[in-house]
Amino acid sequence: MDESGEIRATAFNAAAVDFYDRLQDGKVYLISKAKVGLAKKKFSNVNNEYELTLERNTEVEECADATDVPAMKFNFVSIGNLQDVAKDSTIDVIGVVKEVGELSSITSKATSKVIPKRELTIVDRSGFSVRLTLWGKQAEQYDSTDQPVIAFKGAKVGDFQGRSLSMMSSSTMHVDPDIPEAHALRGWYDAAPSDQKFQSHTGSMPSGGGVAFDRAEIRNLNDVKVSELGMYDKPDYFSARATVMHIKSDNISYPACPTQGCVSDYSGQAWFQGFNDVGQLLFGMSADELVDIKVREASPELDRSASISTSIGDVTRGHQRAQERDDVRYNQVMERTIGTTYNFACRARQDTYNDQTRVRYGISRIMPLNYREEAKYLANLLLTSEWAR
Rank of each mutant, 00 (worst) to 15 (best):
187 G>R: 15
348 A>M: 11
250 D>H: 14
319 H>Q: 14
54 L>C: 13
120 L>H: 08
222 N>G: 09
181 E>R: 13
312 I>S: 04
25 D>W: 05
209 G>Q: 11
26 G>F: 10
138 Q>I: 02
14 A>T: 07
251 N>Q: 08
66 A>K: 07
10 T>V: 06
373 E>N: 00
332 Q>C: 05
107 T>H: 07
241 R>C: 06
227 S>W: 05
159 D>Y: 03
75 N>A: 05
203 G>N: 10
351 D>E: 15
156 K>V: 06
62 E>S: 06
102 E>R: 12
297 E>V: 08
44 S>R: 03
284 G>M: 14
216 A>H: 10
113 K>A: 11
321 R>G: 01
69 V>E: 07
281 L>K: 15
34 A>K: 10
34 A>L: 12
341 T>E: 15
276 N>G: 07
115 I>W: 07
4 S>E: 15
238 F>W: 04
40 K>A: 02
152 F>N: 04
101 G>C: 01
375 A>G: 06
180 P>R: 09
255 P>F: 01
50 Y>Q: 11
376 K>F: 11
316 T>N: 09
199 Q>S: 05
134 L>N: 09
156 K>D: 00
206 P>V: 15
88 D>W: 02
366 I>G: 04
121 T>S: 08
311 S>T: 14
301 E>D: 05
80 G>K: 06
78 S>F: 06
353 Y>I: 12
146 D>F: 02
85 V>Q: 11
140 E>T: 06
369 L>M: 12
253 S>W: 10
12 F>V: 12
303 D>R: 11
243 T>K: 12
297 E>C: 08
341 T>G: 07
302 L>K: 06
41 K>P: 02
77 V>C: 06
116 P>L: 07
40 K>F: 02
44 S>C: 08
93 V>H: 03
138 Q>H: 12
331 N>Q: 14
84 D>P: 03
270 A>G: 00
24 Q>D: 09
108 S>L: 15
72 M>E: 09
349 R>W: 15
65 D>M: 09
284 G>A: 13
197 K>L: 05
8 R>Y: 07
110 A>F: 04
280 Q>A: 00
70 P>I: 08
83 Q>R: 10
219 R>D: 04
287 A>R: 11
177 P>C: 04
374 E>T: 10
9 A>S: 08
276 N>H: 12
114 V>A: 11
86 A>T: 08
374 E>G: 02
174 H>E: 01
297 E>M: 08
131 R>Q: 15
224 V>E: 05
89 S>N: 12
164 S>M: 02
68 D>C: 05
73 K>Y: 10
74 F>H: 10
171 S>Q: 09
131 R>P: 01
297 E>R: 08
179 I>M: 08
104 S>G: 13
245 M>S: 05
276 N>L: 01
367 M>G: 02
131 R>T: 08
91 I>Q: 00
288 D>A: 14
296 R>P: 00
109 K>V: 06
203 G>D: 10
